[in-house]
Amino acid sequence: MPGIIDRLRQRAKDLKRDINAIYLASRDPRTPWPVRWLAIAIVAYALSPIDLIPDFIPVLGYLDDLVIVPGGIFLLVQLIPPEVMREHRLAASNREHAAGGRAAAAVIVGIWLLCSGFAVWAAYRYFRH
């Protein structure tokens, strides 16, 4: 069982790295423009609240997200020139290990804490009367 979990963790790390590499490659002039547009379309689909099959339909609602987005990522990895993908995978791996990600996470957590504190303060003032 630990072997399966380790493989799934590694695949998740690889997927995260590839998504970052695709982002970087989509901004690289060596990447053909149709591939750039496809990358934008896949990211837009992944972030869009509109799906081919609405999410409120049990099982099928999430099935399109589980097939289209990873399939699109796989297709993009195949379409991006190998030397460009290799270069940006390396850059994406280096970015993961940079301290900037931790600093950005700290800023986001700080903003959430401030917003939460403000919400508690506002609720206290509202319900105090």
Rank of each mutant, 00 (worst) to 15 (best):
L114V: 15
R89H: 07
P58M: 02
V43L: 13
A92Y: 02
V84G: 03
W33V: 06
R11E: 10
A103G: 04
G101H: 11
L63Q: 11
Q78L: 15
P49V: 00
I108C: 10
I68Q: 03
D51G: 10
V77A: 11
P54D: 10
I22N: 00
V109N: 02
F118W: 05
D51F: 04
A105F: 12
Y124I: 10
V43Y: 09
P32K: 15
W121A: 10
G61F: 07
D64V: 09
P29E: 11
L79T: 02
I50C: 00
P70R: 10
H88I: 00
R95W: 06
L60S: 00
A99V: 12
Y23K: 04
G61V: 08
P49G: 02
D65R: 15
M1P: 08
Q10V: 10
A103W: 12
L114C: 10
A25V: 07
L8S: 03
C115I: 06
L113S: 05
F127G: 03
I42A: 07
L15A: 15
Y45D: 02
H97I: 14
F56Y: 14
Y45N: 01
G101M: 14
L114W: 14
P32N: 13
V77S: 11
W121P: 00
Q10W: 14
N20R: 15
P54S: 12
V43I: 05
P49Y: 00
A98I: 13
F74T: 02
W121K: 05
M1K: 13
L113K: 05
V120S: 01
G110M: 10
L75N: 05
L63M: 15
Y45R: 03
P32E: 13
I53L: 14
L38R: 01
A122V: 03
L24A: 04
V109M: 11
R89E: 06
L76P: 01
G101T: 08
L76V: 00
V35H: 10
S93T: 07
V77W: 06
S93V: 08
W37A: 15
C115H: 04
P32L: 13
E83K: 13
R30N: 07
G3F: 14
S48A: 08
W112F: 15
P29F: 05
D18T: 02
V107I: 09
L60P: 01
D64H: 09
L90W: 14
G61E: 08
Y45P: 01
A105G: 10
I68P: 00
A92T: 01
W33Q: 04
A41Y: 07
I42T: 06
M85H: 07
I19E: 08
W33P: 00
A46G: 00
I108H: 09
P81V: 00
C115T: 03
I73E: 09
A105L: 14
